[in-house]
Design a protein around this nucleic acid. Structure first.
Lengths: 340, 340
DNA sequence: AAAAATCTGATTTACGTACATCAAAATTTC
DNA sequence: GAAATTTTGATGTACGTAAATCAGATTTTT
């Protein structure tokens, strides 16, 4: 049977109250006594029963999730999954508050972070935007002992406790490897459609993609990046222009959102059939995959990201280690042959 | 605040003891009273606090895992992950017992299942072998109310509560789609190396692979399947023979284990460079991917499978629903460009 | 050495549920 | 309508921890 606080008290020759003081970092224990208790904890291999502790504390975890109010399928999916998680709140002892902020606006995000901090939640998750002010705001929150988790888009160099999202450089490299192999031996031009180069995940995807193509497929030349601003219509125009200017286009890598526009543009020019790789499995990309308009879709599972973020926030709030392998968010690769 | 048993008692106008009798199916409650209590549970939306219940019960989950004693990297990995899970037993209230059985031997598996059943665990997980006797043994255990989960290899038609493993048909289809695209436009022969066609997951992979190639890549002809028995040396000989007989071989799909042998055979014939797709990311396949000997590896994450099996067994033992999306085991696709 | 400050122990209540016991009430049986 | 039976209530203990209180012991300060 695993040891309890009583065993610790006996073994250390102190009272339950003292053990409690040590365990919960309450004041009023001499250093020597504290050491004795900690030694007992060590030798008996005591681990706090988190379930019992939470029961006793009547603990709930008030979490704040800050999400961009973008109007694309992926963000809608993220919102949906978060709502599902909120529906499970009762049994998971969480109390999740969603705050929406305009996308890609550091100022708004900084203000929202400050607000969130004032409510003193047990943890904060946010889709980060690369900005010094945002970094500082995260650091300030972390300094107060409130764990911060970045979601979907990371902010390295900040004191966020964890990043719940995919490795975007690896995603870009994967796209490069696939497009290179799909076009084995051929030489020509490859177009890239991004949302905005101001967003870190898009930049990283492009970096990974370019690195692989440059190193391994010198015959494939990457054209200047077109920005679709994650907007279907802007994306459509961008791709249409791309195809008009380069009738011999061999491939397209769409690394952002707004794939509805990409698909529309492809349908408008049935005479050009480039190899196409896109991100995020939505109703639109799924249909395009089935029809053969898109060759592969790289996907990040919003549900996994949300659940992972919550698990990690809980663990950090409890000061408990996380299972790293379990929290690695993976990149799903879908062909028309393995659609779920 | 979520309702407790006290709220139910008040609302139904009965005592705590009666609520308890209803909740835990204890006898001594008139049908009319039981209905009142159940109505109160329904309208208040009461859900049992599993953590508190387990604490009160002092519940531990004795689980039995039956694994084949195969000597290949994947099974070693599975064992490792299970040992990791056992290390977490204290905090997860599990008590996991591992039983090894000879691989692919229905008789041994049936006997082991009977033994396991006698110890009356809270759940059983096993790597299934396709056999009527095994199916009957599983059904008998399920009939006793002990949840059974199949791991890695399923046994449809049995009364197992869940399958913790990948969709092997989809895996085969993915391999087919990749090999087809990697060889776009070319016509020739494709070799298949399996462990044994007596194993369900291998058969399913082959089915998926064949279906895609037949439908979409008629230029690619699948040669008769060679069996490597998941043994490196047998596999090496099989592939060497394949390459000797078909110098123009365009591709190889290795859908089982023993990839060490496959790699050795490839190295021995640098004059033939087929497109190669294999299963399971191990030290060997990883190195071969980096060197370009293998083009893609389809992987199932043993850690996820183990953790998922445990989560599901717990949920089934508690009669609690599982989050289906969370328990879907995904197929990772690795190119040399996205090795973790 | 006395006073003040600090540390420690003993004890109690609580969290939400499980489970057991005994008495009281309601119902059924004869 | 009394006895037998079934149903229900009241109550207490337990699980492992948290948190609070108050008394007593020890240490530090003056």
């Amino acid at each position: 049977m695993r040891p309890t606080v009583h065993d610790i008290a006996d073994h250390a020759g102190v009272s339950l109250a003292t053990v409690d003081r040590v365990l919960n970092r309450r004041p009023g224990v001499r250093a020597a006594t504290r050491a004795r208790v900690e030694a007992a904890i060590e030798t008996l291999g005591y681990v706090r029963d988190v379930a019992a502790a939470n029961l006793a504390k009547g603990r709930v975890y008030p979490f704040t999730f800050i999400l961009p109010s973008s109007d694309n399928s992926f963000m809608h999916g993220l919102h949906d999954e978060l709502r599902h998680a909120m529906a499970r709140s009762a049994s998971e002892r969480t109390n999740i508050r969603i705050v929406e902020v305009p996308a890609f606006e550091p100022t708004a995000l900084i203000a929202t972070l400050a607000e969130a901090r004032d409510t003193q939640p047990a943890g904060i998750a946010l889709v980060a935007v690369e900005d010094e002010g945002v970094r500082a705001a995260i650091d300030a929150i972390a300094a107060e002992g409130i764990p911060v988790v970045t979601l979907v888009s990371d902010l390295p160099g900040s004191r966020r406790a964890h990043y719940a999202g995919v490795d975007n450089i690896a995603a870009g490299r994967t796209a490069g490897g696939l497009i290179g192999r799909f076009l084995r031996g051929r030489a020509g031009k490859i177009g890239v459609l991004a949302g905005s180069m101001l967003v870190r995940d898009h930049r990283e995807r492009l970096d990974g993609f370019s690195a692989v193509l440059t190193a391994d497929y010198p015959g494939l030349a990457i054209l200047p990046v077109r920005e679709g601003r994650d907007d279907p219509e802007v994306a459509r125009a961008a791709v249409a222009g791309l195809m008009a200017e380069h009738p011999g286009l061999l491939g397209i890598y769409s690394l952002g959102a707004g794939n509805r526009g990409l698909i529309a543009a492809l349908k408008a020019r049935p005479d050009i059939r480039p190899v196409v790789i896109a991100h995020e499995l939505t109703a639109f990309t799924r249909a395009a995959l089935s029809e053969g308009l898109i060759d592969a879709v790289l996907n990040q599972d919003a549900g996994h990201e949300i659940r992972s973020a919550i698990r990690v926030l809980k663990a950090k709030a409890d000061g408990v280690p996380v299972i790293a392998a379990q929290e690695r968010i993976r990149i799903d690769i879908f062909l028309k042959d393995n659609l779920p």
